[in-house]
Design a binder for these strands. Structure first.
Lengths: 148, 148
DNA sequence: AATGGTAATGAAAACCATTATCATTAATAA
DNA sequence: TTATTAATGATAATGGTTTTCATTACCATT
């Protein structure tokens, strides 16, 4: 299923070496759908690979974001969270955040409408402010099932 | 123009006292359209009111967010920024962020379309996940005029 | 106006996520 | 196999924010 060196060429292309810590971090992220903080990732990996350092986790996450294999999510307070970026085009999604318990829900409804709106907005902003849009983010805040 | 105790009743309603630090912080924010960090606000006020403490600035900003008079903006890394929330309904806006220089641009184009999309999304999410939406946020990332 | 109860203040220390430093280790080109 | 040099991991440092606590000052009640 998971060929061990699936992503090796992506590293090579970025003048980066293929190392054990990088492989296990990326493999770990590719197998979970959770949105985890650096510390949580570190704690999870530490059991199987006690030699790993938190610093390396931070550096690797940073590299993976630069390469474009994962997303970094920063929701207001608290630590940044990371999620694996799926190859599948139709898995583009946004987040629903519970303001009480911090729960994060992925949703991908209305992506068609959203795309229409963002495309239109991007064009207008480009003209009006001479701003070159690279990416966008949409999130909803509220109360999840358990918290209301 | 600015009655000095314009917001006093808002504090009372929240069982909070009307104090000098709170007044000058709120007054300062109401007069600027910039998105300032706690430290920047502190530095600006320190000149006119050297007795003020950074801690009080943080605490007051937190209170003002709770009361609903200002917005707290958290853009990835760096300090949180704060903006005065205008009373005028038509001044609802979102942000355009330059990923290179950090510049923030307010825009309020397509609010009609946005409202349509968010309303629809909120209804669906409420049904599908039993999630009660309270607020939303949209932001675009890219390069500003100077940085591209 | 004076008093007293208590919330608010400010200086300092603590906290927490993240980054920098640096000696050691290991990936890879030769 | 070796040499080069990027990557690692322990530790210290950093920066934003929060906590602690003794002091101050709002403001409801006299």
């Amino acid at each position: 299923m998971h060929s061990p060196h699936k992503w090796r060429h992506r590293f090579r292309a970025n003048v980066s070496r293929w190392t054990v810590p990088r492989e296990i971090i990326l493999d770990f992220l590719s197998r979970t759908s959770k949105h985890m903080s650096a510390k949580e990732i570190y704690a999870s990996l530490y059991r199987m690979y006690p030699g790993i350092g938190l610093t390396t986790v931070y550096r690797t996450l940073d590299l993976l974001v630069r390469i474009g294999l994962i997303n970094k999510l920063t929701f207001g307070d608290g630590p940044s969270r990371y999620e694996f970026k799926s190859e599948k085009k139709n898995e583009h999604h946004h987040h629903l955040l519970c303001t009480k318990c911090g729960r994060i829900i992925d949703y991908n409804d209305f992506m068609g409408e959203e795309l229409k709106l963002t495309k239109k907005t991007e064009e207008t902003l480009a003209k009006k402010y001479n701003f070159k849009v690279q990416d966008h983010n949409i999130e909803f805040y509220g109360l999840c099932e358990k918290c209301q």
